[in-house]
Design a protein around this nucleic acid. Sequence first.
DNA 1: TTTGCATTGATATTAATTGCCATTTGCGTT
DNA 2: AACGCAAATGGCAATTAATATCAATGCAAA
Lengths: 149, 149
Amino acid sequence: MPLSINEVKKLLRAKEYKLTPQRQIIMQVFLDIGDQHLSAEDVYQIVKQKHPDIGLATVYRTLDLLSDLEVLRKMDFGDGRSRFELNTAGTHQHHHLICLECGAVEGFDDDLLDGLEQVIAAKSKFKIVDHQLKFYGYCQACRKQEAHD
Amino acid sequence: MPLSINEVKKLLRAKEYKLTPQRQIIMQVFLDIGDQHLSAEDVYQIVKQKHPDIGLATVYRTLDLLSDLEVLRKMDFGDGRSRFELNTAGTHQHHHLICLECGAVEGFDDDLLDGLEQVIAAKSKFKIVDHQLKFYGYCQACRKQEAHD
DNA sequence: TTTGCATTGATATTAATTGCCATTTGCGTT
DNA sequence: AACGCAAATGGCAATTAATATCAATGCAAA
Ligand SMILES: [Zn+2]
Ligand SMILES: [Zn+2]
Ligand SMILES: [Zn+2]
Ligand SMILES: [Zn+2]
């Protein structure tokens, strides 16, 4: 659970990576922005405001690197681009509600599935290490505007 | 639950669509091939063997059309392309195991989540209409070759 | 047969991501 | 402080899935 840049630095060092200024800048975006799901382009636009000389390729590389370190979590909500968020709670407890109307994504943490992995593992030959649960529906704003009930 | 071409024809007719030869050929791939998850390119390659004059665009269009009719189900397993499968059992009961080593995908049907939607809906402001559950791990073949236990 | 309209197939286009490579940077060693 | 070198960067080309475009085709009704 990396809460600070220093903890990220330790994780990088442990795998012989450096905490470059660019990596620090990109990491800071996620530490600042809170509970949001950003695409690579999102991050690029935010970062460019204060650091116009950063490259898009570096953003992609850094997001992948931080995902490998499990500092970030790479997700796909079906809109054709990957999205990234801070991996604070363990992956297992974090799930998503996705609005079919406007695409809004809301995260929530719950461990209701923890027992389920063993049940599934017993029925199959898989060694399960992770899971991902997404709910699709209509958010409150869209429910008010259209008749989705 | 469309088991036959005729049932698909009815569903198409109900929405003013025709069962063209191309659509029938593409649909037949899924009826023949059983429990697999095919990309548009996969379908295109299979279909081209006996019908070399079919176009890739038509494959894409037909897969989208059949997904709209809920004859097929469009899925994403994180390998950068959409995959399609017969939508026999309801979507709600169909889930997937994905091998992190070789990418193999295994489907299984289970209704263990049916009660969960209400629990989540109660905690959030979403009107939930669907969900998707994926498990990640290592398939039997990969477990034998590498030490993943 | 003629007209209208959905469908098709070839091709161009879009958009996210990755690959490539010359240049720069961080950092340990002199 | 200057050096050497691998790692990292930035700009841009290349790739790739998917979509858009559009002329040609085919079917169905009049
Ligand atoms: Zn919404
Ligand atoms: Zn989230
Ligand atoms: Zn495997
Ligand atoms: Zn399946």
